[in-house]
Amino acid sequence: MKKKYDDQSSINESIKYPKVRLIDVLGKQLGIYSSDTALQIALSEGLDLVVISDKSNPPVCKIIDYGKYKFLQEKKAKEAKKKQHNASLKEVKMRYKIENHDYKVRVNQALRFLESGDKVKITVIFRGREVQHLNLAIELLNKIAADLKDNSLIQQLPTKDGKNIIMILAPNKK
């Protein structure tokens, strides 16, 4: 009984090693066999011979149902991808003449982003001739950094970027 699979690099007849270490369905080591003998044992049980590890000498092969094995590998990969969190860059914008309540709202917003594991880019926007008040914007950014010091690390100090001043905060890993 020959089965067709799209990835046949390490199953059944495509195994080109002279000797393999054989493991049965229950995970018990059967010993070292020639590839042909191991394949005959697998086929006699109606299952496939699959290379599990080609790094060892001799390579480790297991007698399993390849379709089920492939399904479980894909399921593991999907679970690992779910648990992975890609930190993105969120932005909080404000003017240098911000009111106290609005300031607290922006700080809480940045705190929420940091707690969810994202980096935060804090931008102070200038219009027209307001650019001459750079020192006030830098003081504001330093105040934000001080307010968020328990939850963040400064990744980029305040820098001028055109008519804006930006600072980037990264989440603090405790």
Rank of each mutant, 00 (worst) to 15 (best):
F113L: 05
L134C: 02
K4R: 10
V25S: 04
S56T: 12
E79V: 10
E91A: 09
Q84E: 09
P59N: 05
L136W: 04
K78L: 13
L89W: 00
I168D: 14
M94D: 03
Q40Y: 14
Y17C: 08
V92H: 10
R95F: 14
R106I: 14
V105I: 11
L47V: 06
D161Q: 13
N57K: 15
Q40N: 13
V131R: 08
E13I: 12
L134D: 01
S10V: 01
G46D: 03
A80V: 07
I125A: 10
K16L: 04
K160Y: 00
N151P: 08
V92D: 11
A146Q: 11
Q40E: 14
I144R: 01
I63L: 06
L30Y: 02
E74Q: 15
M167N: 00
L136K: 00
A137R: 04
Y33C: 13
T123C: 10
I144S: 04
I11Y: 05
L30W: 01
I165F: 03
S10A: 02
K19M: 11
V124H: 08
M167K: 03
L134A: 08
D65Y: 02
K173C: 13
V50A: 07
Y33G: 12
V131K: 10
E79F: 08
R95M: 14
L26H: 15
K78F: 13
D118I: 04
Q8P: 14
D161M: 11
Y17L: 07
K104W: 11
L30T: 04
L114F: 05
K104S: 11
V60P: 03
I63E: 04
R21Q: 07
D6K: 08
N151D: 14
A145W: 01
P158S: 10
G31K: 03
L136I: 05
A146E: 12
L148N: 05
I165S: 06
D118Q: 01
Q84C: 06
P158G: 09
A170F: 02
L89M: 06
N142Y: 05
K97S: 09
K163W: 11
K76R: 15
L134Q: 09
K62C: 04
E74G: 15
